[in-house]
Amino acid sequence: MSFSFPILPGGHLLAIEGLEPPHIGALLDLAESYALLNRSGKTQRDLLRGRTLINLFFEDSTRTRTSFELAGKRLGADVINMSVSTSSVNKGETLLDTAATLNAMHCDLLVVRHAQSGAPALLSQKVSASVINAGDGTHEHPTQALLDALTIRRRKGRLEGLVVAICGDVLHSRVARSNIHLLTAMNARVRVVGPPTLIPAEAARLGVEVFHDMRAGLAGADVVMMLRLQKERMTGGLVPSSREFFRFFGLDREKLAVARPDAIVMHPGPMNRGVEIESSIADDPERSVIGEQVEMGVACRMAVLDVLARDLRRNA
């Protein structure tokens, strides 16, 4: 596949916000081709041969790190995982000290996860590598939105016009923000559903409809996207208890019944079964596409690495 325009302007993937629909569509098309390649059991190990990809994770994440690692290896990159424990941060090493170290290692592609919004953007100004945001604070998680969109597109054949309900802790969710930007750009109808304490200020200004009642929010939905509720939200007083949360905002059969009969259920993982989602729904092959999300994750990350590597070659 070749493109007549730069898919990721600036040579980084820091956010979905700011990407134009043709860019998103092109990334999804490329990812789809990688999904087919992966299913066929073939690899394309020459694409990133000799390139170094560093997974720089300031927060633990087995799933996302493994997905990037697999994507890099399938394209032939040398993949190194760096987990920066909070202890070395506490010793006074700053993000920019880390950037200087990485520059000295001549890293080509840098995948960053950080607990602070904007940290990958800050790093991108200081490192020579192409930076991919693998989740920053409560800002964005762009590859998650890409894999969600690809999963939806494969199941529903399109994004435009679909009703997508994003449910739960929207306030603290970078997954929700990236999905909102991507899906509204592609003309899906996006709803956010949750208690007012977990909906960000001025959410409607992002182009979504806000619901505080789960049944109203799920009515007629094509896609139900559940978010993870972090345990510390309970201690922070934003919701009184997990049983109350599950009763009113957790996904069970009764609430799901008001969505479209063919509605799919998604979750970015890891799930809190019995808090935001009932186990039987999470494991229902008729409804849940959670396994497919993981599969599409590898394909989307291959597509992003591929596109950024083209820029690397162009600039070499």
Binding site: G118, T138, R174, A201
Partner: peptide, 11 residues
Amino acid sequence: EGELATRLGLP
């Protein structure tokens, strides 16, 4: 607090 802080993911 407002639209900009929400977009940037800032408290």
